[in-house]
Design a protein around this nucleic acid. Structure first.
Length: 514
DNA sequence: CGTCTTTGACCGGCGC
DNA sequence: GCGCCGGTCAAAGACG
């Protein structure tokens, strides 16, 4: 049921063809890691193509001009020839041939114009198709989320009807659970129980994988690595306290927004650049030495719009300084340039995923975007994304620093790869190929509050296959991370409100603090 | 001159 | 209550 955006990659291919071959050798050395260099390249390509088209247009117009000129000249000649009998008598046979040629030229010109119009129309249709596809996916996600909620309602009702215990009255209402509350449900159902009873064996039977996941989680859950109050957690707590008292929708909404802002998505990527370029404009408003990390942590605020609440932290990993940890938080309240859409969608989706995941029951949750995320990620077998509900903020960490060994394994069946390819990321395949996709989403056992992640593995459509190697390019990694969450972004964007075109909630969970 | 970065001060939460 | 710590503010300086 999950469909990925219709490929419009042909355009990219075409664009690639139009790209001058030497352009690849002309990549500027940037201070920032250009997260979406491919995107930009695409843009550049588009521009190039536009330019090219314009150029062609000019050529055409020149041709047209020539034709017109010639036509005009010919017209004059015709007139002249018509008026001058001497000429007519001299070039009588040649004139008919010329007329044929002129007619042919006119026809060619017309055909060219028609072809040009057809191409433009084709481009428009492609754009419309892309837009429609995106809208469809978004709506599908929303539908899925709504169905999920209804299922949860039914399930809860069923449980309550069966459960004669007095706890029935203490059962939580199906109010979206705030992130801050994510630590609580463990008392209801232990995470181990959930995992052993529900998680597919393929996911967790591998002890090494589990250990690896645990290792990542340990990093995230370390008090030193998890900031205590980014964004005034106290306020969130107050919000939550208010909402828990049932003081109205406004409070709930504000609490939800605050909660949403608390959600973090962390991206770990190897990069020598001081900052990852994600398409947004950032202003540095602070820098701190974090405990336990000799590298300072920089605080940035989105400056693309006044009052945009999105912030991000940038810090190098203490253990491996080649790893750049970028943490996003908050939702953009303004339109974003295409280059920023992916990452913004990532953060939005991640935050939404956490939120939706927190509202789920222990039952399947297959319809939940969280699970869609998991379903997307799980066929791979390493630790790419980690979800941590560690207090005070839930965090999704996309660890893009490790590459899996299995190049031809399930990765090729991963829809993400198809997605990444179809969305243009495949261009990066040129650059080298350790595999980024052989990394899996792991469930935080110790703080397993996201039952949605415990999903049957059979739901994955492994039939689709695209052979592609995934580069370890940090740009790609970041773009990939964005693409991953973009897949599930449909629900999130609309859940978060109409004004948000995208969000940023990337958290570098393993950020080392001093 | 406007914008951005730097950096010390300040605030609030948390643990002891 | 006190100190530590993370996060933010805002003045001062740098830069184009």
């Amino acid at each position: 049921m999950f469909r990925f955006p219709v490929s419009l990659g042909g355009q990219c291919d075409n664009l690639k063809q139009t790209q001058p071959s030497d352009e690849q050798h002309h990549r500027p050395i940037m201070d920032e890691v250009d997260f979406f260099r491919s995107e930009k390249r695409d843009d550049q390509n588009v521009i190039t193509e536009e330019t090219h088209r314009l150029h062609v247009k000019r050529e055409n117009s020149r041709v047209d001009d020539d034709d017109d000129r010639s036509m005009g000249i010919n017209t004059g000649l015709n007139l002249l020839t018509a008026n001058t009998g001497s000429d007519e008598s001299l070039v009588d046979d040649g004139l008919s041939v010329d007329m044929e040629e002129k007619r042919t030229k006119i026809e060619n010109t017309q055909l060219r114009e028609e072809l040009k119009k057809s191409n433009e129309e084709n481009q428009r249709l492609k754009e419309m198709l892309s837009q429609t596809t995106n809208n469809f996916n978004s709506l599908q996600m929303q539908l899925v989320a709504v169905m999920r909620q209804e299922e949860d309602h039914h399930h809860l009702a069923t449980i309550e009807s069966k459960d004669k215990d007095t706890n029935r009255h203490e059962a939580p209402e199906m109010v979206p659970r705030q992130f801050i509350d994510l630590g609580l449900p463990s008392a209801e159902v232990s995470s181990d129980e959930r995992i052993t009873s529900r998680s597919p064996p393929s996911l967790l039977e591998d002890s090494s994988s589990r250990q690896r996941a645990k290792r990542v989680l340990e990093i995230e859950e370390s008090p030193e690595n998890e900031s205590k109050g980014w964004g005034n957690p106290s306020k969130v707590s107050k919000h939550n306290a208010s909402s828990s008292n049932g003081n109205g929708n406004a409070i709930d909404q504000s609490a939800a927004e605050a909660t949403m802002r608390k959600a973090r998505v962390s991206v770990r990527a190897r990069s020598e650049a001081p900052m990852l370029s994600d398409g947004c404009q950032w202003r540095k408003y602070g820098q701190k030495m974090a405990k336990g990390n000799p590298c300072p942590r920089a605080y940035y605020r989105c400056t693309m719009a006044v009052g945009c609440p999105v912030r991000k932290q940038v810090q190098r990993c203490a253990d491996d300084r080649s790893i750049l940890i970028t943490t996003y938080e908050g939702n953009h309240n303004h339109p974003l340039p295409p280059a920023a859409m992916y990452m913004a969608s990532t953060t939005t989706a991640a935050a939404s995923m956490l939120l939706s995941g927190s509202t789920m029951s222990n039952q399947d949750g297959l319809m939940n975007p969280t699970n869609l995320f998991a379903r997307t990620m799980l066929p791979c077998s390493s630790s790419m994304a980690t979800i941590s509900a560690s207090a005070p903020f839930p965090t999704i960490t996309l660890d893009l620093t490790e590459s899996a060994s299995n190049v031809n394994g399930p990765t090729n069946n991963n829809p993400l790869m198809q997605f990444s390819q179809r969305s243009g990321f495949a261009e990066l395949n040129q650059s080298g190929l350790p595999q980024m996709m052989g990394q899996a989403l792991y469930y935080n056992q110790q703080q397993s509050k996201f039952s949605g992640l415990l999903i049957p593995s059979q739901s994955l459509n492994a039939g689709e296959s695209v052979n592609a190697a995934m580069p370890a390019n940090p740009n790609f990694a970041a773009a990939l991370a964005a693409a991953i969450t973009s897949i599930i972004n449909g629900s999130s964007n609309h859940q978060n409100g109409s004004s948000n075109s995208s969000n940023n909630n990337v958290t570098t969970g393993s950020g080392d603090r001093q």
